[in-house]
């Protein structure tokens, strides 16, 4: 019987790899999920108020989207974010990550602005507090300001419909 042990080990490994092949090992799940959004106090871009804090997010669900004009993935998701904003399906807060204002403005002019408010995080400090490691990243917050979902990489219709909308529905 003991001569069959290597075969059993192989079977276990193969099973493991079958599962592994369907996963992306690069994704780092956020420890923030289920917790209150991290505190921040950032300057706004053309806002009514010069600064905004995490307290201002409460009251209704919001998508906090870290983006930058230099990031390719952000261009990719931009049209869809515009669509979400125009349909009124989502309230979007943009946090412009390590980006120059002189680059951002023409970028927004060309592509449109889906964000209710844009905050600027020039030094990337807020990015670190939110555990951002590669823009675009999108956090879904419920009305109480709790993080309920994190999307790493561009937002897509599939993710919005299959993962985020049901969560938002059950949260309200």
């Amino acid at each position: 019987m003991r001569f069959a042990i290597p075969l059993v080990v192989l079977a276990l490994l193969v099973g493991l790899f079958m599962i592994g092949l369907r996963r992306d090992p690069h994704l780092v799940p956020s420890p923030l999920i289920g917790k209150a959004a991290p505190a921040f106090d950032l300057p706004t871009l053309d806002g009514k108020r010069p600064r905004m804090t995490d307290a201002d997010l409460r009251g209704a669900p919001v998508l906090v989207n870290f983006f930058a004009s230099w990031c390719a993935g952000c261009q990719e998701e931009h049209a869809y974010l515009m669509q979400l904003a125009q349909n009124g399906q989502a309230r979007l807060l943009g946090i412009d990550y390590k980006d120059a204002e002189s680059d951002l403005r023409p970028w927004l002019t060309r592509r449109g602005n889906p964000y209710g408010v844009i905050l600027t995080d020039l030094e990337g400090k807020a990015g670190i507090d939110w555990g951002v490691y590669g823009v675009p990243e999108t956090f879904v917050l419920d009305a109480k300001g709790t993080v309920i979902y994190k999307q790493i990489g561009p937002m897509t219709p599939e993710i919005w419909q299959h993962d985020i909308q049901p969560l938002l529905r059950s949260a309200t």
């Binding site: 001569f3 069959a4 290597p6 075969l7 192989l10 193969v14 790899f17 079958m18 092949l21 369907r22």
Partner: peptide
């Protein structure tokens, strides 16, 4: 590329699995 991964995995099952069965 997952399809390459699947192929090598399948190949491993045949070669290593065959060898270890013979061994057992």
């Amino acid at each position: 590329d997952p399809s390459r991964g699947m192929f090598i995995l399948g190949f491993m099952v045949v070669v290593v699995g065959g060898a270890l069965s013979l061994y057992a």
